Amino acid sequence: MNLLKIKETCLYIHDLNKAKRFYHEVLDLPVISYVKGKHIFFRAGSSVLLCFNPEDSKLKTSPPPHYGNGKLHFAFEVASADYLKVKEEIRLKGISIIAEVTWKSGKESFYFEDPEGNVLEVVPDEGIWE
């Protein structure tokens, strides 16, 4: 198998309106699809962030049922040259940075939460996993 990347990342969000305000209006991710009470999908570069209402998605028959709970995690990748600018933009939007990590490579990443409590991270495009 020659997998290219993870195309979709999925979060389980009870309040899809809050998700829309945060991911679309605050983080500026374009909305791909929104079905009230069911899901909202966002474009994030060449990837897709799927936000499902877990009470609905656990009852699905197609695609297969799926759901989760708790503080899930994923990371946004930004160009290394834009990392500090993005960090400042997050702060200016009133979002609290809850943690910062310096990795073995010397590169840094930072963490913040969405309104549902999921832990989001911003990483530079070079140095974290190389």
Rank of each mutant, 00 (worst) to 15 (best):
Y34C: 10
F112R: 09
I40M: 08
I6N: 08
S46T: 13
F74E: 02
L27E: 07
L92N: 15
T61L: 11
G127T: 04
L4A: 09
P65D: 01
G45E: 08
P115I: 09
G127F: 06
E121Q: 12
H39V: 04
K7C: 01
K85S: 14
I32E: 12
F74L: 04
F76Q: 08
K71Q: 13
G127P: 07
P30T: 13
S62Q: 10
T61P: 00
P54E: 05
R91K: 15
E89L: 10
I128P: 02
I95Q: 09
E88M: 13
L50D: 03
I97H: 05
L11H: 06
Y12V: 00
D28A: 14
F74Q: 01
S57H: 07
A79M: 07
D125Q: 09
E121M: 06
K60R: 15
E100W: 09
H73V: 01
G37S: 11
F76E: 01
A75Y: 06
G37L: 05
S96T: 13
K58P: 04
F52W: 13
I90W: 10
V122L: 03
D15K: 05
Y34S: 06
D56E: 12
P30E: 15
F22W: 10
I95C: 06
A81I: 14
Y34I: 03
H24V: 05
Y23P: 01
W103I: 01
K5A: 08
K36P: 00
D82F: 01
K71L: 04
E116I: 00
K87I: 01
T102W: 01
S80V: 08
F42M: 03
L4T: 12
H73K: 04
A75W: 02
P54Y: 02
V122E: 05
E113I: 02
A99H: 12
F112W: 10
D28K: 15
Y34T: 04
E121C: 07
L59E: 14
H24I: 06
I98H: 10
P30S: 15
W103T: 00
F52L: 05
Y23L: 03
I13F: 07
K93T: 05
S46G: 11
R43V: 06
V35T: 09
A79P: 00
E108K: 15
G70N: 07
K5G: 00
H73G: 00
E100M: 07
D15F: 02
A79S: 09
G70W: 08
K85P: 00
I90F: 06
V48T: 15
P115Q: 08
N2V: 14
K87G: 00
E25G: 00
I128T: 11
K20Q: 14
S105F: 12
E88V: 02
S109Q: 07
S105P: 01
I97L: 12
I128S: 04
K38E: 15
D28R: 15
I40T: 03
E88Y: 06
V101F: 12
L92C: 14
